[in-house]
Write a protein that binds this DNA or RNA. Structure first.
Lengths: 127, 127, 127, 127
DNA sequence: GTGGTCTAGACCACT
DNA sequence: GTGGTCTAGACCACC
C-alpha cells in the first residue's frame, strides 16, 4: 500500500492517513487480517511524527477498522467490525448535505451529482 | 431566515453560518438582491461576536455568494456570481470521495448513497 | 455625460464619480468651461446622497480639475489647472508599481502590460 | 526579506504586507517552498498585532501565493498556484484604467507612461 | 512551537 | 447607521 501525504493540505495528516487506509480497505487492497506497518516504521516511512501515526491508528481502532493482534500487531478487522449503523448513517447524511447543498446552490445539476457519485463508486470497485 | 448555531459543534461557528446561508440561497429562501442582516445585528441575534459573523460574510463574498451594496449593506449576488467552475468541480469531487469511500468501506450500498443524495436534492428543491 | 455608478463596487461612490468626471475630461467629452450639473441635481439624478456628490466635487476642485464660477456654478478648469507635477508623478509611479508588480508575479508578460496600457490610451484618445 | 511598514499610510497595514511579499516573490527574493516567518514572530518584528499579519497571510493564501505546510509553516506556493487567468486580467485592466486615465487627463504622455512601466519591470527583473 | 478560532472593544470611512 | 481595520488576549488542534 502506498500512502501519499500532502503536507500542504488543510486536512490534518492523521485524517489523511485514516482516509487512505480506509480507501485501501474499501478497494480490498487491504483485507481482513492483513497486517499494517508498525507505528514506528510507518512514521519513518512517510516522515511524520510517531504521535500522528498513532492517532490515526487509534481512530481507526475506535471506528472498528483495525484491531490489535497480539502476534501480528495492528491488523485489519473482520468486515463485521466496521459495518454502518444508524449513527453513522446520520453523520454521513449530514456530511453529504453540506457538500451537496453548496453544489446545488452553484447550479451543479442533480445528474452531475449522481454521476459523480457513480464515478467514485466505479473507481473503488474497479480499482 | 432562521439561523440555528450549535455552539458545541466542532465545526466552526463561521462555517455553520456559511452553510446555512448557502442553504437558504439553494432553497431560494434568499434570492438575488435580498438583504442580509448587518454583522452587528446578526451577531447580537445569535449571540456571537461580530467578527465571527464578519468572517462568514467575507468568505461568502469571496465565494461570490454575497456582495456589499453601498446602500443596502450585504446582499445576495446575482446567481451568475457563484456558478460552478472546473476548480470547484474538482474540489467537490475530492470532498465527495472522502465521504463516499468510507461509506463504501462500511458496506453502505451504491443505491443507499444515490438515494441519500436524491433525498437531499428533494429537500432543497421541494422546500 | 453619463455617469454609471456601481453600488456593489468596493470603490467608494465619490471615487467612482471623480474617476468618471476625470475620464470625461481626458476624452474631451468635457472641456474647459463646460458646466457640471449642480450637486443637488446630480445627486438626485444618480440617486446618491448630496454629501457624496459634494465630496467628489471638492476633491476635483482640490485637484484642479474643477473650479467654481460665480455665474455658471461648477465648471471644468482650463487644462493648465491640472497638469501633472513632480508629486503627482511620484504618486502615479507608486500606484503603477503595486499593480504592475503583482501582474509580473503572476507571470503577465512585459508585452502584455504595455499592450494593455496602449489599449487604454487608444480608448481614451479615440473615444 | 525586509518588510517596511508605514503606519501613517492610508493603505491598510495588511495590504502593505501583501504587496511587499508579492514584490519579494516577483523579484524572486522569495521562491517556491521558501518559508515565511510565523505570524507571531513577524507581528512582533514589525510591531503590529498578529491578526493583522494573519489577515495578510490569509489573503495571499486565497490568492494562491502562499500555502500552509504542516511541517514548515507558511511557505511560498509553486508558481503555478498564482498564474493569471481571465478574471485577473480583467481586474488588472480596470485597475490600470483608473490610474492611466487620470494620468492622461493630466497631460502625462503616452511615452512617459510606457517608460514608467518599463522602469518598474526593470527594477523587478534586474534586482 | 505552529496556525485557526473566538471574544471584546476601539476607531475610521462611507452614506 | 453600515462595513473595514486594528488591537489585545484567550483557547484549541496539530505536529
Amino acid at each position: 500500500m502506498l500512502l501519499a501525504i500532502d503536507m500542504n493540505s488543510e486536512t490534518p495528516i492523521y485524517t489523511q492517513l485514516c482516509r487512505q487506509i480506509i480507501k485501501a480497505i474499501a478497494t480490498k487492497e487491504l483485507q481482513e487480517g492483513d497486517e499494517l506497518p508498525s507505528v514506528r516504521s510507518l512514521a519513518a516511512d512517510i516522515g511524520v511524527n510517531l504521535h500522528t501515526v498513532n492517532k490515526a491508528y487509534n481512530i481507526l481502532k475506535a471506528d472498528g477498522f483495525l484491531v490489535v493482534n497480539r502476534r501480528k500487531g495492528v491488523v485489519v478487522s473482520p468486515s463485521t467490525g466496521y459495518t454502518y449503523n444508524e449513527n453513522y448513517l446520520q453523520a454521513l447524511k449530514n456530511e453529504l448535505e453540506s457538500v451537496v447543498i453548496e453544489a446545488l446552490a452553484r447550479h451543479v445539476s442533480d445528474d452531475q451529482l449522481t454521476q459523480m457519485v457513480h464515478e467514485i463508486v466505479q473507481e473503488v470497485r474497479g480499482d
